[in-house]
Design a protein around this nucleic acid. Structure first.
Length: 301
DNA sequence: AACGTACTCAACCGCGCCTGA
DNA sequence: TTCAGGCGCGGTTGAGTACGT
């Protein structure tokens, strides 16, 4: 029920890019009369467009309060935070693959949901993926294979650090391995905090901040890891330098998408819990044996 | 300089919700 | 209570532009 006839059904209305003349007609009309019913706007304004097209043009482009230009760092952080807590909610479930862009836009004066959506899909999403973070759940990958590969990754990281800095291939691998270390640390902290931070309120931005937990100060500052240590306003350290992160804190867990639901729910059951902890135990032992430096032990303590 | 590829973003499409008859 | 009309939303498309080879 209820679907209005699509503009596509009317072969007579113009589609595609708006001309300056059309823009002017629409602006003049709305400034004078307000939009009222969008269906009658094109007729009254003398435009050969459907009402829907007029509404879109106005809300996404012509509105006088629209802020144009690039997104700032603060805006980017805000979007990431809001995205992490504003999934579509149906009943008790939150669906992160259906983001409520309009609600995010409401927190960013002058920005439209369309603009934010585009910004997310073209920039932030890729950025998160490059960091090994699931853009739907805002979590690092938690699959076990990933965890169990860590000893190899540690070797690569250490080898990479010893190599000539000009050896690009080794540096790249080392960087990737160090990123993996950061992700694993993140995994562990999230597992540890599962019980603490499950309550996400409807105004999730605040809830996210309130549920943050301090990161132990003993984390080795080896540059790349520090670069992705999250902080309150920028959970994944996407937009600010390490120097800006004086008080790094870990974001609390947020409710998760259906596809990852089983993963996180399993964190609470004994079987998966123990498997993950076993993996960590193995990792720590290997770390101990490898160089006696006990990197992970120190981190966990 | 020419071509191919990647990226951006305005605009469109289709669905679901709300409202009023 | 039912249902049609209208609106708003999120997802997708495609033209224009930037960048790399």
């Amino acid at each position: 029920m209820g679907r209005s006839p699509s503009c596509a059904d009317d072969a007579n209305v113009k589609k595609g890019p708006w001309t300056a003349e059309e823009d002017q007609k629409l602006v003049d009309y709305i400034n004078k009369n307000g939009h009222g019913s969008w269906r009658i706007v094109p007729k009254q304004a003398g435009l050969n467009r459907c009402g829907k097209s007029c509404r879109l043009r106005w809300t996404n482009y012509l509105r006088p309060d629209i802020k144009r230009g690039k997104f700032g760092e603060e805006e980017e952080r805000l979007i990431i935070n809001l995205h992490s807590v504003l999934g579509n909610k149906y009943g008790d479930q939150t669906f992160y693959h259906l983001v409520q862009w309009s609600k995010i836009a409401a927190h960013l004066p002058g920005r439209t949901d369309n603009e934010i959506k585009n910004f997310w899909n073209t920039r932030i999403r890729r950025k998160l993926l490059n960091l090994g973070i699931d853009p739907h759940t805002h979590k690092p990958r938690t699959d076990l294979d990933h965890l169990l590969n860590v000893s190899q990754l540690l070797c690569v990281a250490q080898l990479g650090n010893m190599m000539n800095p000009l050896d690009a291939a080794f540096k790249l691998q080392a960087d990737a391995a160090q990123l993996a270390q950061a992700q694993l640390f993140q995994n562990l902290m999230q597992i540890m905090n599962t019980n603490k931070a499950a309550n996400v309120e409807s105004d999730g931005f605040l809830a996210l901040q309130e549920n943050t937990n301090p990161i132990p100060q003993s984390i080795p500052n080896n540059g790349f890891i520090a670069g992705v240590v999250p902080q309150t306003s920028d959970p994944w350290g996407l937009s600010s330098s390490f120097e800006q992160r004086e008080n790094p804190v870990l974001p609390g867990l947020v409710s998760i998408s259906p596809e990852s639901n089983s993963t996180m729910e399993n964190k609470g059951n004994n079987e998966t819990d123990s498997t993950i902890y076993e993996a960590w135990e193995k990792l720590i032992m290997e770390d101990d044996e490898a160089d006696g430096g006990s990197y992970w032990k120190e981190m966990l303590e």
